[in-house]
Design a protein around this nucleic acid. Sequence first.
DNA 1: GTTAATGCAAACACTTTGCAGCCGC
DNA 2: GCGGCTGCAAAGTGTTTGCATTAAC
Lengths: 148, 148
Amino acid sequence: MTRNTKVLEQLREKGYRVTPQRVMVLSAFGEREGHLGVEQIYQRVRQAYPYIDVATVYRTLQLFKRLHLVTEIELGGVMRFELAEAGGHHHMVCRQCGKAFDLSPSYLAEFRQRLIREFGFEPDLEHFAIAGLCALCAASNSAGTSKP
Amino acid sequence: MTRNTKVLEQLREKGYRVTPQRVMVLSAFGEREGHLGVEQIYQRVRQAYPYIDVATVYRTLQLFKRLHLVTEIELGGVMRFELAEAGGHHHMVCRQCGKAFDLSPSYLAEFRQRLIREFGFEPDLEHFAIAGLCALCAASNSAGTSKP
DNA sequence: GTTAATGCAAACACTTTGCAGCCGC
DNA sequence: GCGGCTGCAAAGTGTTTGCATTAAC
């Protein structure tokens, strides 16, 4: 909880109000690491407080994003949010099981350098996420050789 | 035109009808290389035939996609389409000027191999597109040093 | 007590769908 | 002429906005 408390103090310091709704949106993340879609967050908060509106969730997430408390990444056309704390790690997300794996920035550094060096193109890699098939799913697919 | 004609024959061979609307959607691509949004395609076709409906554009693009005549890539939350012909080249798209630059698959091959080797993660790179800032825009930004 | 934040509803942009008439084959 | 395709309109999504009320400070 100490992490969330810290975040909430940041809010108050900057003159924003600490409302139950904001606390709940924040703790929706706390329960599980990873990227959450708006709908997932909404449903989670609703379990605790059914009167919350999706608009509030959107507004809260926008606020958090503006304050760099969460980051927004897009993957496969779906926008997802995650706590910004970890800072600068990227993701590989399995298209089959949906699990996300962290990817150290060093893996991309090389690729990035090459683009800069050879094209002068500076890629946006802050919130890089790449879809694919994870080892487990690949294995289970080839196990049941017949059509999935 | 010979390329489009070929595509249209593919359509007919598979039992789909070659309609003026489909031809026009196809030639919207022909006039300019690169990725087009639905709206851009719609506007282009409308110049030639004002009665066309967006729904038709959507349906046509879906059909083309299903037949692998075009591919759909997403970049910065915007879905875009491009002719599938070239096959397997990727893009760097400038977030400022919107221009797209081709990226040979070899650049990604290395990165891809590394993910497979070290994580067993097989990334989807068929329609890879990466946002960033191109050399020209970076230059013009630092030229006018003051705020843009 | 102030003023920001919420809930509600309505507006929005984008995409899909149902259907009657039309036209490519 | 048949059946797929189109235009039109209407319905879905997902996200944002206006406004009166509520509640954090």
